[in-house]
Design a protein around this nucleic acid. Sequence first.
RNA 1: GGAGAAAUGGCAGAGCGGUUUAAUGCGGCAGUCUUGAAAACUGUUGAGGGUCACACCUCCGGGGGUUCGAAUCCCUCUUUCUCCGCCA
Length: 423
Amino acid sequence: MLQVSNIRAHKEAYIQAFKKRNFDAENILNDVLKLDETRRSTQAQLDETLAESNQLSKEIGTMFKNGEHQKAGILKGKSAKLKETSKAFSDELNTTIQELDKLLYTIPNVPHDLVPSGSTEADNVEIFKEGDIPVLPEGSLPHWELAKKYDIIDFELGNKITGAGFPVYKGKGARIQRALIAYFLDKAANSGYNEYQLPLLVNEASGFGTGQLPDKEGQMYHVGMDDLYLIPTAEVPMTNMFRDQMLNENELPITCTGYTPCFRREAGSYGAHVRGLNRLHQFDKVELVRIEKPENSYAALDKMVEHIKDLLRELKLPYRILRLCGGDLGFTAALTFDFEVFSTAQDRWLEISSVSNFETFQANRLKLRYKDKDGNKQLVHTLNGSALALPRVLAGILENYQTPEGIKIPDVLIPYTGFDIIN
RNA sequence: GGAGAAAUGGCAGAGCGGUUUAAUGCGGCAGUCUUGAAAACUGUUGAGGGUCACACCUCCGGGGGUUCGAAUCCCUCUUUCUCCGCCA
């Protein structure tokens, strides 16, 4: 959520920046400023009434002490009138605040200068590419065929137990999942990230804190009886650990990592692109979260990018990095880099990580601030990134490492799997 | 699931209808003293809104109510603790 004070100070710049999202913000920003005007003047009127009322109550108190009951009775009537007035102002204030918040909730983050304009993923800018795309032998298969051939992932079984998008990993398939999780967590720990095991269900306040609510309500599974949501990413519980906190400067940066399953309804996604592991309702992911001082956040974003590059280099998977265009940028992000692995057998790129700087957008909702050297309180910047999402990494490994003898295991994973081929 | 108790500033802890604009202690910060430090002493020390700056307003777990006036009384929700039951 944007800060009204910033909207007031940078309105024109924001309107220009929002054009990159194809978002014509002029009217809504004007409405916000107008409502904020109303809010402040109503607040002032309310405060004035309350001040008068407080004063009166004190006087009445003194009169009672002095036994001047009759005099007090007169003032009581006056006080009742003031109460009516303050109630009216208070109602008006609440209505205004609600309207203001409702508007603010619909405004996405301001795109960073580096964000290219554009409306679809075709407008994303490739900024880096590394790794050789292997030439596969005759008769090479897409990963869902390989999964069946070697009996390591069973999609039908998942259909039976739950429904589409909930695969069952079996034998070496299950083992390689566990290996990937352990490998990713070890790498994160070596880079200084603190490991957490987090709740997989979160309350409404947490959903609001990181911006999934109210924007993406339909994308999360909701447990009605207890009014809880299944997490769509570890970002939600991991970032919300710090909700409503005043940090000291010397506590920053805070760096966390954690493995969780992720649950997404993916309403409206069907067709060939969701085959196999490409798009699931439940999948595993290791996530990184950083809480930074504003002046350091973009250097931190670069660090996260380097961390993920290192993972993909070690796994020897061909990948590229995209800078997301305004149209593809998430609601809460100021700047996002997507990592994609090349799926040889499908002849397409698969997104396996998304790394974003949210600047103060989440911190403002979370009320997550820190005190700098001079004792000034300011919002922190929050960042997060997947390192990595498992299913598409697995798809990439299965497809790129297939040989006539079976699927080789990347060298770096062998200590974790305990085997070097799936056959 | 049942019965009881509790929730107050960074922490501990008083207050149970009107000098509480929240006592006191600890911790933090600044100063005095000291070659320096400790100790001692003095001062200072929560958040949000608002203002050029003051003033002023709000906040004692969340929400609602009673009252001229609520940290204090009532209702409700949440959480924690103790006991009982169930349980990996």
